[in-house]
Simulated scan of single mutants.
Amino acid sequence: MRFQDDLSSFNSNTNSSTLNTLSHYGISGAFVSKEISLKEQLEIRKNCDMPLFVLGHGVHI
């Protein structure tokens, strides 16, 4: 059996240092916390060496 080597959306990643450490241990992708701003998410993207995912949804008004 092979497990997928990316982190689920239940993990709240909020900085590039943590994500780079996880990458070092074989994690190939991760979700960025939805509680941080877009500016912070983009800053993490610039300083991270793995694919990142953002969970998002919209609401009809």
Results as ranks from 00 to 15, higher is better:
1 M>E: 14
1 M>A: 13
2 R>N: 07
2 R>Q: 09
3 F>D: 07
3 F>S: 13
4 Q>G: 14
6 D>H: 15
6 D>E: 12
6 D>M: 10
6 D>W: 15
9 S>E: 11
10 F>Q: 09
10 F>C: 07
10 F>N: 12
11 N>M: 07
12 S>K: 07
13 N>C: 03
15 N>E: 00
16 S>Y: 03
16 S>T: 03
16 S>K: 02
17 S>M: 09
18 T>W: 07
18 T>C: 04
19 L>S: 00
19 L>E: 00
21 T>S: 05
21 T>N: 10
21 T>R: 11
22 L>F: 08
22 L>Y: 05
23 S>M: 10
23 S>E: 08
23 S>R: 10
23 S>N: 12
26 G>Q: 03
27 I>T: 05
28 S>G: 06
29 G>F: 07
31 F>T: 00
32 V>E: 00
32 V>N: 01
35 E>C: 14
35 E>Q: 14
36 I>T: 02
37 S>E: 05
38 L>C: 03
39 K>M: 12
39 K>L: 14
41 Q>H: 08
41 Q>R: 11
44 I>V: 03
44 I>L: 02
45 R>I: 10
46 K>Q: 06
46 K>G: 01
47 N>P: 07
47 N>K: 05
49 D>R: 12
50 M>I: 15
51 P>N: 06
52 L>M: 08
52 L>F: 03
53 F>M: 08
53 F>L: 13
53 F>N: 07
53 F>T: 11
53 F>Y: 13
53 F>P: 01
54 V>G: 02
54 V>R: 02
55 L>P: 09
55 L>K: 15
55 L>R: 13
56 G>W: 05
57 H>W: 15
58 G>W: 14
59 V>D: 05
60 H>N: 11
61 I>T: 09
61 I>R: 15
61 I>A: 11
